[in-house]
Write a protein that binds this DNA or RNA. Structure first.
Length: 133
RNA sequence: GAAGCGGGCCGGGCAGCCGCCGCCUCGUGCGGAGGAAAGUCCGGGCUCCACAGGACAGGAUGCCAGGUAACGCCUGGGGGGCGCAAGCCCACGGCCAGUGCCACAGAAAAGAUACCGCCGGAUUCGUCCGGUAAGGGUGAAAAGGUGCGGUAAGAGCGCACCGCGCGGCUGGCAACAGACGUGGCAGGGUAAACCCCAUCCGGAGCAAGACCCAAUAGGGGAGCGAUCAGGUGUCCUGCCUGGCUCCCGGGUAGGUCGCUAGAGCGGGACGGCGACGUCCCGCCCAGAUGAAUGGCUGUCCUCGACAGAACCCGGCUUACAGGCCCGCUUCCCCA
């Protein structure tokens, strides 16, 4: 009875390397709080921030990069704005692949309510330059 | 045509590519945010907890009737207010159950009183006593309004009409309305002041709740092994700790369920002024858990607002670029 679910899960193994180049499966995301803590407390963790976007990254023991998002309600009050911000980051992460690190992107506090998509995008390009030179 | 009133609807479209979430029949198939998903202000379902019954406290509601699972919602009606009208707005029970409050002004803010007056009497001509509340003055508000009679002057003192109270009558399920009779007339305002009356309400919420369960975490029990080793004690009797196997519940990390077929949606018929109800036919329409709807390109237009499901429904309230449709009112012009 308890094994049934496990069997189903085992029968559909996650494809480690997806066929398409620009994908964003679950294995590329940080989900659990211990994964986040690993990055924040890592000895080789590095940080960078712009006017709107801030990020922390640290090497992981995998070939691929993984993304975690930390967008607080204090930073962006409206949930529509939080969704938009996360979409922009995910899209950029997907189309500009990194490798061998865990990256956490968050939104700076005190950002004025109308979220400027263009400015966020430009900052992401800038930050990517610092992360993967 | 102008000004206005009420109601309803849409919330960029199409094509291609790169991605994301769910489902299965695994096909490169199907489905994938809103009118408010929002605020969390009411009501209910659902779940757990508590509970003999009832009352008190506390809270909510407050014209009548109906609708509904229920409501603080909706519909219809009554009353009041605003508008020429279409229409819109109203917490709209009770201050002769009690208590409190009422600034300033004013004589006086309530079973009280008389500043200026008016009238009568007395007078030492200074004024005093009595009557009165029509007039002046104050105020948001001062024992109902207008007129006539009446009087020393006045007064519902008397009369008519209006207003108010009471009584039965008529219409209406009722709120209430109407006409009639009757009483000369109760008595300031404030109940989103305490309060009184009537009706309703147990508490917490899906992080509810249920299930499966790791460990170099840990509790209990049984058996085996051993008479052992370590610690404590001057020694004995002792006490504490330690091995392996099996069983038992509790439960952290984590996972699974709850999780979407429902007071559901779209037609039609019938009943009802209507809210709504009944029946028939058809449809399946997000279920994520760092949490999915984007991005890029082309094209068209009026260049796209407010804003993102998190257990689910019914309401209310608030936000909203621009646009469309229907009905109605008043006025102007033409025929």
């Amino acid at each position: 009875m308890p094994g049934a679910a496990a069997v189903v899960r085992d029968s559909s193994p996650e494809p480690e390397e997806a066929p398409g180049r620009f994908t964003f499966p679950r294995s590329r995301r940080l989900a659990h709080s211990h994964q986040f803590q690993n990055v924040y407390r890592h000895r080789k963790a590095k940080r960078a921030r712009g006017r709107i976007v801030a990020c922390v990254w640290a090497p992981n023991e995998q070939s691929v990069a993984r993304l975690g998002l930390a967008v607080s309600k204090r930073a962006l009050r409206r949930s529509a704005a939080r969704n938009t911000f996360k979409r922009l980051v995910r899209e950029h992460f997907r189309l500009h692949p990194l490798s061998g690190m865990d990256l956490i992107v968050s939104c700076c506090r005190g950002v004025r309510p109308p979220l400027d998509r263009r400015a966020v995008r430009l900052e992401l390009v800038d930050l990517w330059g610092k992360i993967a030179p």
